[in-house]
Design a protein around this nucleic acid. Structure first.
Lengths: 338, 338
DNA sequence: ATGAAAGCGCTAACAG
DNA sequence: CTGTTAGCGCTTTCAT
């Protein structure tokens, strides 16, 4: 932002009129003569004048910027969410600032500070795996900045949220394996401080219990990435208690399990059935292809942003927070089909 | 950005001092008494005062924001680049605005306008597949906004750039298959208006020619995604001229080829060897695992941002544009190893 | 040690 | 139809 960008003053000076006239001409204000308008617009085009968004923000007390806090952009689910957010924001004339927390609490804290300092008009948040303290998020609410949580919500914060029906989807995923005759189903679970981690485990438990199967605590392992899944598989094998089905909290964990099992010579789905979660770009690519729950990231981004824009544009902080629940869709593929 | 954020004035009023005193106290200015400083800082903390970044930007004529234009965030390569960008920017106290062009020229145009309007301190660009007109990028240079291209550069624009040695990497990838005894090697090429598309094809051609093999035009197909690869494979099969090796412009294309071939009953790498480009998260997951060129996205993001920050902080527009070339590393995996 | 005033770029009363 | 003025939040001379 060096000093050589064209301002309204430059145009005013060159045309021998006042800045306000230029401002009005640019806005097509009816008071201004056609002649002046033409002169102003021509010169503006010639000089490639771009209004200074910062000055406008300061004046108008709104930035037309939406801040997004996202755990990790490299995941297909999260980048689809971003696409949804951007599409809606873009159509409404809003810009988007994306901040990655990298799953770190400290970084998330700093992200919130940044977005407040930038005076964004609204904030979309999916909390990090580490986040167990929510003061910074409360701070957003206190500052009366519209806030919508997507996917990973913060308990106790009075704000809109859009989530998927994690418990039901997890239940369906597990039940599907049971329906195929599996008896010893394990769960590779996510962090239990995240609601999604709890809910997916709950759904799993519900299906197991409902089928009258035993809940074996050795079969519930906190494993939410490739490496942990591999290690868990190795444990199962050495201890001689291999499950015949595994429901994983996400796809990459399911793939870690798949690779680990195949390395040990087991066949998928014959020996062990696998179902993941999120339906990333991986699912169709593994051999066999991976059953998974489609989490509809793009739609989630759209919905969250629409909710946020509603708060921003209608300027309503009075009505109570809404929670929208999207349905996750179980996609059955080779890894769990007999 | 509603009206209820705490400002320096609020603090001044409550303490019965002037705004300038508060400002100075907050900055630790030596003129201010310890007593006043303490009072100001305490109240600021209590009210959770956050300086208005917009007012600061307007005053200082710099935003400490870096604008990034990226084709599509969902690709592992590009999201790694973003991580590199963010890490460097973050450490230097800069924020990042990410704009997706979605591979559309119009969107890219609009992105550039937005970033100029936001008066970002510098811009990082990788051009879209559609971009063949570069005036908007020239506009950035004209406005004296520091500009660095990464990966996909715009010819004829006088700006820094960081790329990988696409031609050499493509040459190595192709040569590797030739060294393994392949004689009929095809190339699934990217858009030829992108330099990376041209260069990767050039590298392929160089290896083929150097080995004294025939350049068969039927073996050079413009295919840069999963579906196009599948179709191309089908064509090869129906026309009865299946190659024994394919070098693809990116991984997802290589995987499309792999799936297409396997569906037809061909064995990888026995019947056809495959090498991709970019070494995304897919590479280790397919069966067999995919040989690919590691494009070092994270490092590219780091390098590009360091170059940009140098321009911004040293305020040097005088020295000539630099081009940094990173080396791509061929990673040989199961899809091309006999 | 502190305050008053000006200014960053723009808009919107208010005046003519 | 157009100009003058004030103000958005903050910093920074220049006074005192």
């Amino acid at each position: 932002m060096k000093g050589n960008q064209v301002t309204i003053k430059d145009i005013a000076r060159q045309l021998g009129v006042s800045a306000s006239t230029v401002s009005r001409a640019l806005q097509g204000h009816p008071d201004i003569s056609e002649e002046t308008k033409r002169a102003v617009n021509d010169l503006a085009a010639k000089l490639k004048y771009q209004p200074n968004a910062i000055a406008l923000s300061l004046k108008n007390q709104r930035t037309r910027i939406i801040g997004v806090i996202i755990p990790e952009i490299v995941h297909y689910f999260f980048s689809s969410v971003i696409s949804g957010i951007e599409d809606v924001a873009y159509n409404a004339g809003f810009n988007v600032i994306i901040c990655q927390s990298n799953e770190k609490f400290d970084r998330e804290l700093s992200n919130v500070k940044t977005l407040i300092a930038q005076r964004v008009d609204g904030i979309l948040v999916s909390i990090s795996k580490e986040t167990i303290d929510f003061q910074h998020l409360q701070q957003i609410v206190n500052n009366q900045i519209p806030l919508v949580f997507y996917d990973r919500v913060a308990p106790g914060i009075f704000a809109d949220q859009v989530i998927i029906n994690d418990m039901e989807a997890a239940y369906q995923a597990t039940k599907h394996m049971i329906d195929q005759g599996r008896k010893r189903i394990a769960h590779f679970a996510g962090p239990q401080n995240l609601l999604i981690g709890q809910q997916r485990k709950e759904g799993y438990l519900k299906a197991v219990r409902e089928a009258g199967l035993e809940v074996d605590p050795r079969y519930i392992v906190e494993a939410d990435n490739y490496e942990k899944a591999q290690r868990a598989i190795l444990n199962f094998v050495t201890e001689g208690n291999l499950p015949d089905g595994i429901f994983s909290v996400n796809d990459i964990t399911a793939i870690g399990a798949m690779k680990g099992l195949q390395k040990q010579g087991f066949k998928i789905p014959d020996d062990v059935a696998l179902v993941g979660f999120s339906d990333g770009r991986f699912s169709g690519i593994t051999e066999p292809s991976l059953s998974s729950v489609d989490q509809h990231g793009y739609e989630m981004g759209i919905t969250a942003t629409e909710m946020l824009l509603k708060r921003i544009l209608e300027n309503k902080t009075d009505y109570p927070p809404e929670t929208k629940v999207l349905e996750g869709d179980l996609i059955i593929r080779g890894s769990s089909r007999l």
